[in-house]
Amino acid sequence: MNQRRSFFVLTMMVFGFAFLYIPILSLIVYSFNESRLVTVWGGFSTKWYVALLHNEPVKQAAWLSFRIATMNATGATILGTLAGLALARFGRFRSRSLLAGLTTAPLVMPEVITGLSMLLLFVAMEQVFHWPDGRGITTITIAHITFSMAYVTVVVQSRLATLDESLEEAALDLGARPAKVFFLITLPIIMPAILAGWLLAFTLSWDDLVITSFVNGPGSSTLPVLIFSKMRLGVSPDINALATVLVLIVTVGIVAAGLLMARQQKRRDLDVQQAVAGNQ
């Protein structure tokens, strides 16, 4: 009975992983294809990666994506941390649930809607304030911040929810003013969560296509936008190589964020364990 069940679980797991990762795996495999024809295997080669290095538009797009992702991650982390703090620490203020709903709505909002409404807003703003001047890196960054901030908020808020509030009270009690308490006690303790939020925001921006394609302008193609537009002309092997690099970067970001959160969880568990076991 037990063995049969473990066989069942194993099968389901294999199917699940296959479903999720075979497409990506085939992409990675074909990125090492010698042949110019994407679907015909012509032997192992890294020439598409070399070609990538000499492809100016790709390098420009990658640099642009990197700058946007960095700015977005930083902006989203600052705003998201503030929102997380407000939700976790300021008690039950009026419109608290409204704030909670609004900050986390982008998690479930269809990207097309977010993108379209951002575009309309930017166009209207340009007419009224003459800012932002055209669409490009600024509009993309702002649009990215609006949706990735939600993720940072959730990460920071859940960390704060498990942070013993008496730590902050103890610091107050020992003579630190509220602002000092935040910088000396709260911030250092929740730093890993903030870093994880930053990495998450970075990867979200790095691979976003839908929202970007609404708010980008001429000459501001991010990497995903570039790949998508090239795809329309037919699949070429250097796209496979590029996509593999993208996947690699996203994986590194997600794994790092995951490790940070897992390590923190482990330390918390350890602290709790020791607190229980340590009463000797």
Binding site: S166, L167, A170, L172, G175, R177, I189
Partner: peptide, 20 residues
């Protein structure tokens, strides 16, 4: 008087030692 100005200190049930 706010807590940071009172000549009063408190020992918390959880001890609230700063972990870092």
């Amino acid at each position: 008087m706010p807590p940071y100005e009172r000549p009063v200190n408190m020992m918390f049930q959880s001890y609230a030692l700063f972990p870092h």
